[in-house]
Design a protein around this nucleic acid. Structure first.
Lengths: 145, 145
DNA sequence: GATAAAGTTTACGTAAACGTAAAGTAAATT
DNA sequence: AATTTACTTTACGTTTACGTAAACTTTATC
């Protein structure tokens, strides 16, 4: 299934849970370059990989333009001159910094989510206690303000 | 500086490198709730924290609406009923899944960036070799200008 | 008291990433 | 042959997250 060599637009759309509209849009923006049989697009496994990369890029907060730039530079690493190669290396450095930022953000978020979860569970426990004491004799009440 | 209790809009904007327009927009969308002295907004340290969270949320791919929902639910954990608390816990679970996805994405990206870097450096080395063989006899050459 | 600096509201404009509808083609099925 | 199914192009519409300009107030400074 995954080692097929060609794909229709709807096959790809279905596999990655995107609309055909999106796939066509990505082609329009120069991120995918499917072959054609007549009018019909025929996607290669390279296209499939790129679609996967596009979607991951999106999840990581990259714009389509950024991803396209990476694709283009990547292709140029095969034929490119020194200047382009150095640019690619520079961009890779930037991306690495980006990844570090993301890792920090994630670590922070994880910590805060633990705090949040604890607070929620404590609040729930508090509610439980009140429920139980409501069942007993209404002897005392806690202050509220 | 960071433990001040109130901030002007431009102070916050400067600190987090956003425009005042953005800050006002966030208020408009209900994410910030600065006090007012006359017309002028006065931001508390709570607002400052929230702004930080907003921006981190953006870096992590959260929309302002999503972040607002989290803020609102968070506030409700103080007063909220059981249903809201459970909802908050459910959302926290979702976010955790989201974080896992992000971590996977990052790990993948890191691996592929290594591959890319290697390819770049190899291509560069290849160019160097050709340069040298072009120069032929000259035994010593100094790099850089 | 004129002016500059920082703040405000109102409102139209914009870029990105598609959604959605219209209208047509091309192959497969009934 | 007629219809369904999958695909196509063209093109206007929509949401998010602001940018940008205009016109106005408030506070500080010369």
């Amino acid at each position: 299934m995954a080692d097929k060599t060609t794909y229709s637009i709807s096959e790809l759309a279905k596999e990655f849970d995107v609309t055909t509209r999106s796939v066509r849009f990505y082609e329009d923006q120069g991120l995918l370059k499917p072959a054609r049989r007549g009018q019909t697009r025929i996607f290669s496994s390279k296209d499939r990989v790129r679609l996967k990369l596009i979607l991951r890029g999106k999840r990581m907060g990259f714009s389509l333009a950024e991803t396209k730039e990476l694709f283009d530079l990547w292709d140029e690493t095969l034929t490119g001159n020194e200047k382009q190669l150095l640019k690619m290396l520079a961009i890779l450095d930037n991306k690495r910094a980006h990844l570090e930022q993301q890792k920090n953000d994630i670590a922070q978020a994880e910590m805060e989510m633990e705090t949040a979860e604890t607070r929620c569970r404590e609040a729930l426990a508090e509610l439980q206690k009140r429920k139980e004491s409501q069942t007993e004799q209404p002897s005392s009440e806690k202050a509220g303000a």
